[in-house]
């Protein structure tokens, strides 16, 4: 299992993403100006402030040469995980529905949250039990998930709401407490909290590993 972790000017979580993915497989960094996915089985778009978050978070990163390759990879069914700014990039790229808006509390907020696994059947959550709570950090200023109500209804019916903030823990005003969603095909997943920062007991939780273990399981088995 080989993971490719994208690196933009302004990325800041690519090292942790590489370390986390390295616990379950091989992980290499992919520079935003290159176009070679280096034979990776899965792509991680990491957190940070790609291209300075100019205009809107993720808006300019979405047009980088490497993202063009990732979009084609995702359209072919390849596994793509977007974390925080990576989630914003995937929404801007149209690979995931919805948009991330400024937190209702108007603050950059950093805290440990519990994520409820709503859909344990995706390639990103299959190592989790239904309803399992994952303790992972969240740290962002623009993580308020938004999609029109009718679209949210359709996404819920289709199992595309993958993780929610546990009751009372949604600090950013996200619609229906949504923390992470997948596309219709299930091969692209984005979430605001950071599983890659929760892979070592030293920092308080290893629950984030479940996401990477799930991806390794998915890549090892039949193609999704």
């Amino acid at each position: 299992m080989k993971f490719g972790v994208l690196q933009f000017p302004g990325s800041c979580d690519e090292a942790d993403a590489q370390l986390a993915a390295g616990r379950v497989g091989e992980a290499v960094l992919l520079w935003h100006r290159d176009r070679d996915l280096a034979g990776c089985d899965a792509i991680i778009v990491p957190g940070g402030f790609s291209y300075g978050d100019y205009l809107r978070a993720g808006a300019i990163a979405r047009f980088s040469p490497m993202m063009e390759e990732v979009i084609a990879f995702a359209r072919d069914g390849g596994l793509v995980l977007g974390i925080c700014n990576g989630f914003q990039v995937l929404c801007e790229a149209g690979l995931l529905p919805g948009a991330l808006l400024q937190n209702t509390n108007r603050r950059f907020t950093s805290r440990q949250v519990h994520l409820e696994v709503v859909s344990p059947d995706t390639p990103f959550t299959r190592a989790c039990a239904p309803g399992e709570l994952l303790s992972v950090p969240a740290k962002h200023g623009s993580g308020r998930y938004y999609a029109p109500d009718d679209q949210l209804d359709a996404m819920e019916a289709a199992g595309q709401i993958v993780v929610r903030y546990a009751p009372g823990e949604c600090f950013n005003g996200s619609a229906r407490d949504i923390a992470g969603v997948c596309n219709e095909a299930g091969n692209v997943f984005g979430l605001m909290p950071h599983p890659e920062h929760a892979v070592d007991a030293l920092t308080g939780s290893t629950d984030g590993l479940r996401i990477f273990e799930s991806m390794a399981l998915a890549a090892g088995g039949a193609h999704v």
């Binding site: 809107r56 801007e92 919805g98 948009a99 808006l101 938004y146 999609a147």
Partner: peptide, 8 residues
């Protein structure tokens, strides 16, 4: 395509 996000 870029200057606005028509969804929001």
């Amino acid at each position: 395509k870029l200057l606005a996000n028509p969804l929001v």
